[in-house]
Nucleic acid binder design. Structure first.
Lengths: 348, 348
DNA sequence: TTGAAAGCGCTAACAT
DNA sequence: ATGTTAGCGCTTTCAA
């Protein structure tokens, strides 16, 4: 089985010539394999491998109007959470023969528009997207209308002209936040602060809603539920927490939305000489090394990022392969509360 | 300036018809703009925007033999270090009009081969790659030989047939490791363990070399330099460290190569009731939230991942745009020692 | 300066 | 079952 390295530029024509058959026979043999005699199949395979033939996807795409590529728009791949999602999605899509194209949007609608425009001419077969905001829904709706299958990642599902929501992978942040808040309330906390960098995206919104719902259902004075929302000047987590913890009355527990925030909270607590959990209970939304390894280890809300990526890829593949009709257009992933040592009853 | 949303399928032909000019004039007007009268330029622009024309990159690529895409092969995007590099590179390349395609190789040569094969037919204009090992050099050399510009990320540079090494972005891990080791030695440590999950890739190799070099140059008994290399069963960091710390004599300081390892070390120290830095000094190679926020904060070796990504993208763009000849084919990035509170003189 | 025409490499009718 | 032909949408000679 000899193999000559292709110096690029071996076309289907060359294969046809070497195999002594027609162009289309080669195409058929190499693709479907339908309506191809054994002899031709064999000769073509031999010729192709001898020449080191590699089909040209550009040309193929031009004909078939499908690129074998899927776009992925995320706020920021360097965020470990997103990165994990992307990796899982990439693995699924790769196995199905697709290439993943990533574009960072920095949660910036302008960037997102730009990316959408740039991807439009590329004939992407589908998109995984975490939209930056609602103002931008139009650009996605356009893509949807143009027939590009889209799967939304943990954001509000878009609705098309017929009010059919696009497929989406959602995480049950509300239930998670409720579990976390209930846990703190059960420990005796009545002044709980929730720190977040945004309140607009679906995940934060849902968490905040869950947080409030627990206060309401428990009949606790809602004034105890402090919301600290602060679009991020770089030092927000630490600075914001310092301010919060210096206030009176001080919250006895803090729910930190995200690794960044958690880091700030822990730093601030240390700066103030507050001991966790004796002086302050800390609960992280999102489980990372930082939470798991910190001293003391931080109780955290966790959900499977791999599952998010996988589910998104599956939903998309389902639509790409046209299976299952409209079934299972939505996936809701559970959130789990990982009990560790950062929460305790408030000091009397 | 009215704008009608394209329902996809607006070709250059349509623009030509609407603008009342020929196909080629549109192409010229839209691209170079050379040899185009002002009138035509205006009419074409108007028509294009009215129709919401988007050039078809597939078709264009077929003609020009360049896809406007760059591949990026990394072991694992979900590793925050890689992810940061990827993000920085993506930003640079995007600004230059390129799309980034990522492929995870899991440091697995087989995967890498597969990815290389899959990307070959796509006419990628270039590649950023962190090769998984040396056995695979051939597949890259083939690509290089076929004319695809490649930039190596923090791995041994490949050499082509004429022994010209490929462009590469290297981090000065050896100097970093030396600085770290010297620091510990200066504190009085004589039994220092270096924990790593691999010893083959360039970064680890260089660090180990630096580590040993310091022992040699200081004339310290090399037996004090304990190397703990362990390809990762999932619990290696913790388990391996436990074993190490139970041994006699126990190392008084540990250098942890990577976040994963650091997490394991910290966990193990906690399990054993060892206080950092009183009973054990810990130094992290690679600076992350975990190191910065831990109690106590961990002294760490840091280098700019953004710079790695940016430098790689720049090197590649330089070659893509054919500027600068062969100049500046190599970038060596510095490593910095961030002093924090996890290292102290060993207990007497 | 502009237009006509020839492909890029491939797939998919359509004949045979 | 196999071959012939006509494009996919674009850029690029080559004439005019």
């Amino acid at each position: 089985m000899e193999e000559i390295v292709s110096r690029s530029g071996v076309t289907i024509r060359d294969v046809a010539r070497v195999a002594g058959v027609s162009l289309s026979s080669v195409s058929r043999a190499l693709n479907g394999g339908k309506n191809v005699s054994a002899r031709i199949a064999r000769d073509v395979a031999a010729a192709a491998s001898t020449l080191g033939y590699q089909p040209d996807f550009m040309a193929r795409s031009l004909r078939t109007r499908s690129s074998g590529m899927v776009g992925c728009l995320v706020p920021d791949v360097s965020n470990p959470l997103n990165a994990t999602i992307v990796r899982a999605a990439e693995a699924c899509l790769r196995d199905a023969g697709y290439l993943l194209i990533i574009a960072n949007t920095a949660n910036d609608p302008a960037r997102e528009r730009e990316a959408a425009a740039r991807l439009r001419g590329r004939r992407l077969d589908g998109m995984l997207v975490a939209p930056a905001g609602d103002g931008n829904a139009r650009i996605w709706r356009d893509l949807v209308a143009a027939g590009t299958p889209i799967v939304i990642l943990d954001r509000d599902p878009l609705e098309d002209e017929d009010d059919i929501p696009s497929p989406a992978v959602l995480v049950d942040h509300r239930a998670g936040a409720m579990a976390a808040t209930r846990y703190l309330v059960a420990l005796g906390h009545r002044r709980i602060a929730l720190l977040t960098a945004d309140a607009d995206m679906r995940p934060s919104r849902e968490r905040i809603a869950g947080f409030r719902a627990v206060f309401a259902e428990a009949g606790i004075d809602a004034a105890g539920a402090q919301l600290c929302i602060q679009a991020s000047p770089m030092d927000f987590p630490q600075g914001g927490t310092l301010a919060l913890l210096r206030g009176t009355p001080r919250p006895t527990a803090i729910i930190a939305l995200g690794t960044r925030i958690l880091a700030g909270v822990l730093r601030a607590a240390r700066d103030l000489g507050l001991s966790v959990p004796r002086d302050l209970s800390v609960l992280s939304v999102g489980d990372t090394d930082l939470a798991a390894v910190h001293t003391p280890p931080i109780t955290a809300l966790r959900w499977s990022l791999e599952d998010v990526g996988r589910a998104a890829a599956d939903l998309l593949l389902q639509r790409l392969h046209g299976v299952g009709g409209q079934a299972q257009a939505r996936t809701l992933l559970p959130v789990e509360l990982v009990l560790r040592e950062s929460c305790a009853p408030p000091a009397a």
